[in-house]
Amino acid sequence: MLAVADLKKSFLSPEGQRVAIVGVGRFALAAGEQLALRGESGSGKTTFLNLIAGILAPDSGRVTIDGGEMTGLSEPKRDRLRAEKLGYIFQTFNLLQGYTVLENVVLGMSFGPRGADRGHAREVLGRVGLGHRLEHFPRQLSTGQQQRVAVARALANRPKLVLADEPTGNLDRKNAHEALALIREVCREHGAALLLVSHDEDVLKEFEVRKDFAEINEALKEPAR
């Protein structure tokens, strides 16, 4: 489903030095598999997910999603591949503030292979417990509710792979647990693989399969950091 090989990304620091942020030799995820990556703040988790999603282009290396190679594609093609195969729950939600809850989800779907389907969008929103908030705008929602909109938007397209970046970072323990259970359940229902990154032990311990990002990311071992 997801295969990463020799993926490298570095950024220029303000002092003009090249700093390696991500260096992943081999990483894979099977179809329907759910995996949690543990990593400290600043360890490059978001960067890693952005590379997988094709939002960032790597310096070198390869990312293959469901047979489609993300790396090496032009930016518009990466956007297409992302719309087709991926659901991304952003660390900062990235909801469209000027659009209603329903529109956020419908719009997210409209770029994917199945196109906008209001009925399905309503259904998924109902599934995350927002059936009564369809016409609200994001700013009229609590943080936890916004989070659930982001979840619904990521899943409405029936993606093959869901990337979740600290999806419960802003929630209290009870809500975090519920949100997480929801994400995992919906992924299971849709047969989507789930890759979640977090630094929160409470989140991580719910997963059967966990890995330390520090072990995967060789860039963290480089003395330059």
Binding site: A83, F90, N94, L96, Q97, G98, G108, F111
Partner: peptide, 15 residues
């Protein structure tokens, strides 16, 4: 910012 979000969601270039 909105345009960037739309792109992150996979909006086509021509969209």
């Amino acid at each position: 910012r909105d345009l960037a979000i739309l792109r992150a969601l996979g909006a086509r270039r021509r969209t």
